Amino acid sequence: MPTIRQELLIHAPIEVCFDLARSIDIHAESTSHTKEKAIAGRTHGLIECGETVTWEAYHFGIKQQLTAQITEMAKPHYFVDEMVRGAFKRFHHTHEFVTVEQGTLMVDTFDYTSPFGGLGKLVDHLFLAKYMTQFLEKRNYYVKKIAEETANSSRSAR
């Protein structure tokens, strides 16, 4: 059961970071390299607790679909999404947001189990854990970029 944990300081208010992280549209933009798009459930806007989204994307050259549900949410401090259907045996993805002096600390924890038992563990070790780490990092840096641009444009508009 690999767990990927990333922390990222974002120079923007917690509410901005929280909403960008749960935005279906921002997620699709940040994962455009996999042609990821929302095809069912919540397909645009801000996902809420109890809602699902089904994503379609290309990973490792294979078109895949994955449905996740928001199972917990405490605005603007955290939300959790969990896989309902998809390529993993299971996953639990916690998005936490903490106000700090410089802005917001975004803490992303992705805990998952690959299918296929021992073979899945080997796949994790050989390449999947690295792939997922880079995938999440790219998405998180995109959220950071948009959040900081939003915060800067709000400050300059004053």
Score class of each variant (00 low, 15 high):
M1S: 11
P2S: 07
R5A: 08
H11G: 04
P13G: 07
P13E: 13
P13K: 11
I14S: 02
D19Q: 14
D19G: 03
L20G: 00
A21N: 09
H27M: 12
A28L: 00
E29F: 02
E29R: 15
T31M: 13
H33W: 12
A38D: 02
G41K: 06
H44I: 06
G45A: 07
I47F: 02
E48D: 11
W55G: 09
W55P: 03
E56W: 02
Y58V: 14
I62Y: 02
I62K: 15
I62V: 13
K63H: 06
K63F: 01
K63T: 14
Q69C: 10
E72W: 04
M73D: 01
A74V: 12
P76D: 08
H77A: 10
V80K: 04
D81A: 06
E82V: 04
E82M: 09
M83S: 04
V84P: 01
F88I: 08
F91R: 02
H92E: 02
T94S: 07
V100L: 05
Q102R: 15
T104E: 05
M106G: 01
V107I: 15
V107E: 01
V107T: 14
S114K: 04
P115W: 06
F116N: 07
G117Q: 08
L128C: 00
A129Q: 13
K130Q: 10
T133C: 03
T133I: 05
R139F: 01
K145I: 00
A147E: 01
E149R: 14
T150R: 15
